[in-house]
Amino acid sequence: MSAVATLTRPVRVGKIPHAGLLLVLVGIIVFASVRTDSFLNTNNLLNVARQVSVVAVIAAGLTLLMVAGGMDFSMGGNVAVTTAVAAQMLSHGYATWLTLVTAIGLSIAVGLVNGAVVTFTNVAPFVATLATATLLDGVALLVINGMSISIDEHLSGLGSGTTFGLPNLVFVAAAVLAVVAFVMRYTSFGRDAFAIGGNEDVARLSGITVSRDKLVLYGLAGALSGLAGIMLLSRLAASSPGTGGLQLQLTAVAAVVIGGTSLAGGKGTIGGTILGVLLLGVVANVLNLLQISSYYQQISVGAVLLIAAIANLLQSSRKR
């Protein structure tokens, strides 16, 4: 009898993971569908999918890093440098494989430098990576000399190609998200990241190699920044001033925080991050379709990030 009652009992919305975020996303989709016929257009939905794929890859790496109590504000700057270097190499006739290896290798090196500074100097991650972000934005401008560098048809198969009707960029992002989700949930490295974010000193005393793991986490964040840069370059077919940078970084941070990842570390899920990425992508698209000034997009991202950060803090306070 009790089993039957359990099966027939209605599911409480509060018990559905990220129910509030999911309801907001559905509400915005319904609103957009009513206000404009263009939103549910196939081309528009595919365009949204391509746009959010780049943010999703950055957000995946950021989620794992923030779970461990870290932060990397230079991932957007890393994207900018990656696109600039790759665009210059492709435009000068270098082989595609060599370009990809060089660009992603450079992005990994940047991540490892960030990790070394944070791990061995005890400089706050926010300060260290924000300084790196400023430096990388300047380097990106120097590489392209402040001009737009076209790559013509190079990487077009990735940026504009489709498989089974879906953009290839979506498959890349889905693969990255799936791998990071698996690592976080089913591997000792993922469990160690949660432990480090919960209490780094206790994690070290329990035998976790905190310094090594932090270096790996920042290196992984750098690698995913490089991948996101290649994806963005393939979609835009050019590297220009303003490609990547702080705006892209803040969007990724907002998506991760909206998705429930704790700013203090020790808590986060890829499922929440995916919903956060989709929410911000849909909001940006709706603003464009309704011909609302792009300035409001920046305002909305900042406002949502602030609200999410406050909610995150209040939730942590209630648990304590």
Results as ranks from 00 to 15, higher is better:
229 G>E: 05
191 R>P: 06
229 G>P: 12
223 A>K: 06
304 V>H: 02
199 N>H: 04
195 A>Q: 08
249 Q>F: 10
263 L>E: 07
217 L>G: 02
114 N>E: 03
95 A>M: 05
183 V>M: 03
178 A>F: 13
230 I>K: 06
287 L>D: 04
233 L>Y: 00
128 A>M: 06
107 S>E: 05
128 A>V: 09
221 A>C: 14
181 A>Q: 03
217 L>D: 10
317 S>K: 15
93 G>N: 04
119 T>K: 11
267 K>A: 09
41 N>D: 15
193 A>D: 03
275 L>D: 07
64 L>G: 12
98 L>D: 00
189 F>A: 14
241 P>F: 01
90 L>P: 01
173 A>W: 04
185 R>L: 06
210 V>T: 14
200 E>Y: 00
243 T>D: 11
176 V>H: 09
115 G>N: 09
238 A>P: 00
274 I>F: 07
297 Q>G: 14
243 T>G: 10
309 A>E: 08
303 A>L: 15
70 G>N: 04
306 L>C: 08
295 Y>P: 01
21 L>M: 11
135 L>H: 06
25 L>Q: 04
280 L>M: 12
57 V>K: 13
135 L>S: 14
52 V>G: 06
149 I>S: 03
180 V>R: 02
279 L>I: 00
207 G>C: 04
167 P>C: 02
180 V>T: 09
180 V>P: 03
42 T>S: 13
189 F>L: 12
278 L>W: 05
44 N>Q: 09
158 L>R: 03
23 L>H: 01
4 V>K: 14
317 S>E: 15
34 V>D: 00
135 L>F: 15
295 Y>C: 01
284 A>F: 10
2 S>E: 15
208 I>Y: 06
166 L>V: 11
188 S>K: 13
183 V>C: 01
29 I>P: 00
98 L>E: 10
234 S>W: 02
159 G>D: 08
74 S>P: 12
60 A>M: 14
57 V>M: 14
265 G>D: 12
144 I>K: 11
287 L>F: 14
218 Y>H: 04
86 A>Q: 00
199 N>I: 02
294 S>E: 01
35 R>W: 04
203 A>K: 00
138 G>L: 08
285 N>V: 04
14 G>L: 06
107 S>C: 08
272 G>W: 04
9 R>E: 15
130 L>C: 03
68 A>I: 05
105 G>P: 07
175 A>N: 02
299 I>F: 15
265 G>N: 09
95 A>H: 05
14 G>A: 13
289 L>I: 01
60 A>C: 15
27 G>Q: 02
143 V>N: 03
275 L>S: 10
28 I>C: 08
181 A>V: 02
287 L>T: 12
230 I>F: 03
142 L>Y: 09
235 R>Q: 04
109 A>I: 12
79 V>R: 07
190 G>N: 12
240 S>P: 00
296 Y>P: 07
204 R>H: 01
278 L>F: 10
156 S>Q: 12
49 A>D: 08
86 A>Y: 00
308 A>S: 14
197 G>D: 07
269 T>S: 14
53 S>D: 07
206 S>P: 11
208 I>V: 15
186 Y>Q: 12
28 I>L: 14
310 I>V: 15
179 V>W: 07
239 S>Q: 03
320 R>V: 09
112 L>H: 07
105 G>D: 04
89 M>K: 02
40 L>W: 11
28 I>T: 11
261 T>S: 14
83 T>V: 13
